[in-house]
Structure formats: structure tokens, C-alpha cells
Amino acid sequence: MNKKYKSLYFLPLAFVMFACGGEAEETSESAPDDSVELIEDNDDTDLLASTNMDPRTFGGDKNENQDFIDEINLTEGQNSNNVGSYVGSFGKNMINISIFEMTDGKASGYSVCAGNFRKILGTYSEDRADAIHFVMEEPGDDKYDGSFDFELITREEFIEGSWTPFNEGQSSKEFQLSKRFYSYNASVGKYPQASQRELTADDVNNLTEDELTEMRNEIYARHGYSFKNKDWRYHFESLDWYMPTGVDIREKLTDTEVINIELIYEYESYFEEYYDDYGR
């Protein structure tokens, strides 16, 4: 795993310079509360806070976009009809397009992609017996916004179509997404013990820095966190159990996971300080 970027364990809020249609520009600048910060290893900013900080609350108020996602709260029962979440490849990234309302030809939804959240609104029409045609647009207040034109194949439960940017400088994308239902599962991943029980020193003291960071980020991935860090995003999006559902999952962390994140981060920090003497 490339160590160029490292996400802080407490997920503070920061600035995102891209929407899901654009290429990611990762940054360590502080800014609006619509994202989660990633910091470069060689960044001089002193953001390595005390491990006594609760990862569920450190970093400020809850992201308002996550509030919106949680209020919609697409359940398995809702996923039984045409509304629900559709997930798959979108250029180099994975996208989750969630449709939560269809009434009188008008549709409402949102997308989660590359750590970014966008509302989408538009229309639908039942042009064929087995398909529903949607035309939906992002708000247009971001230079990477665009419009979606896709069909929902009802029997097969997938959508296929295209995304066209409002800005001609961006590239269009075609996609095919399958319907999926997210359910938290503490047993998935390479290091499931980090979500299942409190870790001990024996669990972590012989891991490399990359292994420690993967163990910590897996905790967030199990809760559907959409990573802005390109390396970790590509890593988790390659795993069949992973599904990006949110942009601020701090409140969803269990007590056990909070304790383990603090322990893992303590060892990561120690590894950085004493690299020549620590680990195998």
C-alpha cells in the first residue's frame, strides 16, 4: 500500500476539491464541514491529536450531508421496490446512486462517490414494461457537477446509463450499477478482530505501519465510509464486501472500535517516531 497519504484516526472535517465526476485532488487545507480530512505524511500541520480524543466526536459537528443520508435511511424493506441503492464502477471509482423517492414522474436521490456527496433530482418515465427511464441532475454549484441519464431494468435490478458534466472540460462516463443493500458486518475484512473485540498489544505490536493503517481503515470501511484518499479508496473498492454509503460515519463506531482505533493509532505514531527500532 502506498504510504504517501495517511488518514487521521479521528476523521476531522476538511476540504474536498472534487465531485465524483472529477479526478480527486487530495488536500490538507482546512475548510467547509462537508468532508473528512486526509493529511500527507510529510505535512507540517500539527493535527496529531491526543489519543484520548474520542474518534466519534473529535473534528467538530456531524457532517450535514451525513445527517441527510441518515434521515433517508434506506432500509432493506425499501430496497424491495424500485427505490434503493445501486452500486458499481464509475470511471476509476465506485459510486453509490441511491434513489429514495419516486412520485408522479419526479425522482429524488443522492450519490456517494470518492468521499463526496451530491443530491440528485429529476424525472422518470416508464417507457417500457421492464424499464424506467431517469434523467437526474446534480445541483450545479460545483464545477464537477453534471447530469445522469439512465434506465432502471426492473426485473434484473440494475441501472445503466451515462453521466454528462455541465463543464465541458470534464469527461463523460458510462456506468452499470447493481442494486445492493448495506448491512454492517463485523466479520469481514483482513482484520475483523478490530471490530469484534478489544485488541491487545499482542495483536498489534508486530504489525508494520501499513498493516496498522489498513487495520484502522478497515473499521471505517465496514461502516461504509467513502474514502477520499485515492490509495485506500482503490484498495477497499476492490473488495466485494465493501459498499460506500456515507461521508461521516464517526457516530456509527462501536465502543470496542473506538478503543481499538485509539490503540492502533498509538502504535502507528510510535512506529513513525521509532521506525528503525520498531516492528519487524
Rank of each mutant, 00 (worst) to 15 (best):
K4T: 08
F15T: 11
A19K: 10
C20N: 08
E23R: 04
E26I: 13
E26S: 12
T27A: 06
T27H: 14
E29Q: 15
A31R: 13
P32H: 15
P32D: 13
D34N: 14
L38C: 11
D43P: 02
T45K: 07
D46M: 01
L48E: 08
S50D: 03
T51W: 00
N52R: 03
R56P: 13
G59H: 06
D61S: 11
D67I: 14
D67L: 13
T75H: 09
T75S: 14
E76T: 05
G77P: 02
G77E: 10
N82G: 08
V83I: 15
S89E: 11
G91S: 02
G91P: 05
K92Y: 07
N93D: 13
M94Y: 11
I97E: 07
I97P: 14
E101R: 13
T103W: 12
T103F: 15
G105A: 03
A107C: 03
A107N: 03
C113Y: 04
G115Y: 01
K119F: 13
R128M: 11
A129F: 08
F134D: 00
V135F: 07
V135S: 04
M136Y: 12
E137H: 10
P139W: 02
K143H: 04
Y144D: 13
D145W: 06
D145A: 09
F148Q: 07
F150W: 10
T154R: 02
R155P: 00
E156Y: 00
E157S: 02
E157I: 00
E160G: 03
T164V: 10
F166A: 10
F166S: 09
E174A: 12
Q176C: 11
Q176H: 11
L177Y: 10
K179M: 03
Y182H: 05
N185M: 09
K190I: 15
P192F: 03
P192L: 07
S195H: 05
Q196F: 04
Q196D: 05
R197Y: 06
R197V: 07
E198Q: 05
L199M: 02
N206F: 13
L207Q: 02
T208Q: 10
E209V: 12
E209K: 15
L212Y: 06
M215Y: 11
M215A: 04
A221C: 05
H223K: 15
K228F: 10
N229S: 14
R233W: 12
W241C: 04
I249F: 11
I249V: 15
K252T: 04
K252I: 01
T254D: 01
T256E: 00
T256M: 00
T256C: 04
E257H: 01
E257D: 01
V258C: 00
V258T: 01
N260F: 01
N260S: 03
I264R: 00
I264F: 01
Y265S: 00
E266T: 07
Y267V: 00
E273L: 08
E273S: 09
E273I: 04
D276S: 14
G279W: 07
